[in-house]
């Protein structure tokens, strides 16, 4: 048991290093050429220092937001896959992203967002409603939490909310439709640190729960019966996993929109490298997911300057084939 665990440590260290390098390097790359001497110069007043503002307002928050969203989605993916014991589960399987998207669509389309403080709170509210509905359904007929009902309720809610999203689109005008659709493809241009700071407490709470969950999820992944004989309070673990992963997903989506692929590709890639032990998979996924999304965002904003690509397209285009290649290479 200790030997595979020890073998995973270098991978975690490598992923962590990749994340740190990505976050530090990303602000130095961009569509505009800026002078780095000026960025860190203290002789120029900050208000006049455009280079510094591009670095500290446009690029650094973006890299941090990408790291936060990427790491969070990857970890949420790991937990949902463990909880549902389904390798195809993603952070979006249980309808959280659809709820968040519906909230964001309503804020964008009806302009109500400015009253409750913007699109991010609206998407969080939508996510919370989706989580509440799915949980109520899954807990209604069982003493515990039925993962089957959870899954079926989640995907049905996904479809239902998606239909409502289309209905809102139908009611909205042309420019709103355009912006709403663009929101759905993910965007990390957060224009400051406020969105990151707002999401951070939720992510920290979720990550603390994940740390506690790593061991029980290992046992649970064998079977619920086996886990309970080993002293795991199955229902408690399932409930914690569900709410923590949902909170993480809701927070990530409120920052960057429903960016796809990170939550399924990163966990699987990491499992190919370190095995299935959640104590390794979770930290490695967080670091690797962060590095991956920071990298994708750099591509999104530098591929065709000054035009920006939706980052969701990059995650799909880079992530899909890479994952397939790794899978084929291994077998």
């Amino acid at each position: 048991m200790t030997s595979p665990l020890r073998r995973g440590v270098p991978v975690i260290v490598a992923c962590f290093a990749a994340m740190v390098v990505a976050i530090i390097a990303a602000p130095f790359i961009g569509s505009t050429s800026i002078q780095f001497g000026r960025v860190f110069s203290s002789s120029i007043p900050y208000a006049d220092n455009v280079d510094a503002q591009i670095f500290f307002i446009a690029r650094l928050p973006r890299a941090l937001a990408a790291a936060l969203v990427g790491g969070t989605l990857a970890a949420a993916g790991v937990v949902f896959q463990g909880l549902l014991r389904n390798p195809l589960a993603t952070p979006y399987t249980l309808g959280i992203s659809a709820g968040a998207s519906l909230g964001a669509m309503l804020a964008i389309t009806f302009g109500a967002g400015w009253m409750i403080g913007g699109v991010a709170p609206a998407s969080l509210a939508g996510a919370a409603i989706a989580v509440a509905i799915v949980y109520a359904l899954a807990a209604a007929r069982h003493r515990g939490l039925s993962t089957t009902v959870l899954l079926l309720a989640g995907v049905t809610l996904n479809a239902f909310f998606s239909a409502l999203i289309l209905f809102v689109q139908y009611l909205s005008d042309f420019a709103q439709t355009y912006r709403a659709l663009r929101w759905l493809m993910g965007d990390l241009d957060v224009a400051g640190y406020a969105p990151i700071v707002a999401a951070l407490p939720m992510v920290v709470v979720a990550f603390l729960a994940f740390a506690w969950l790593a061991r029980p999820l290992n046992l649970l992944s064998v079977s619920a019966e086996a886990a309970s004989t080993r002293g795991v309070q199955v229902v408690h673990v399932q409930r914690t996993a569900f709410f923590a992963a949902s909170l993480a997903t809701g927070a990530a989506v409120s920052v960057g929109g429903p960016i796809g692929f990170v939550g399924i590709i990163v966990p699987h890639l990491v499992r190919l490298l370190v095995g299935a032990d959640h104590r390794l998979v979770l930290p490695a996924s967080i670091c690797f997911g962060a590095a991956f999304l920071v990298g994708c965002d750099v591509v999104a904003r530098t591929a065709f300057p000054p035009i920006e690509l939706p980052v969701g397209i990059i995650t799909a285009v880079i992530g899909g084939p890479f994952f397939l290649w790794l899978l084929v290479k291994r077998t």
Binding site: N86, T156, S162, T177
Partner: peptide, 26 residues
């Protein structure tokens, strides 16, 4: 898993595709 997969493929696949097509059309 089969149930979930069927529900997933029935419920999830078309909507983002529709949205993507609409976006591309715009």
């Amino acid at each position: 898993r089969s149930l979930a997969a069927i529900a997933a493929s029935a419920g999830q696949a078309p909507i983002p595709t529709v949205l993507l097509c609409a976006w591309l059309a715009i």
